[in-house]
């Protein structure tokens, strides 16, 4: 499990992660905050349904994809924590219906 080195003075906000409420540091890297919250896995693959979690943390591997604020395929390593955000595990490939529902 990833743990914080320092207790910063940052404000904590509430984020809904797979339906439950989790306190996270505002403006923190979302993938980092999700790893600390024990969110696992982030997604399953479209090909075999294998579980995946962040691998590169720099936007090149796409293994940290999740559904963020109802939008699928978001790279959580490139998102920051905002109050009221919702995150859900992404199962396989997003469908056109998922995307339409989000817009």
């Amino acid at each position: 499990m990833f743990r914080p080195l320092e207790k910063g003075p940052r404000r904590r906000v509430s984020v809904r992660v797979d339906g439950r409420s989790v306190e996270m540091e505002e403006d923190a890297n979302l993938a980092a905050a999700l790893l600390e919250a024990g969110f696992s896995p982030f997604r399953t693959t479209p090909v075999s349904g294998a579980p995946r979690e962040p691998y590169c943390m720099m936007g090149v591997c796409f293994d940290c994809l999740a559904v963020v604020d109802d939008v699928p395929n978001r790279q959580t390593c490139l998102e920051t924590v905002r109050a009221g955000m919702t995150v859900a595990m992404q199962e396989g490939a997003a469908t056109v219906r998922d995307v339409e529902a989000a817009s």
Partner: peptide
Amino acid sequence: TLPGVMTAGAAQILLKSAGRVAD
């Protein structure tokens, strides 16, 4: 590809950008 496996660079990014470490 297993969860729990990441690059050393990813571990360092977690340290740099979020102050997060794993024992």
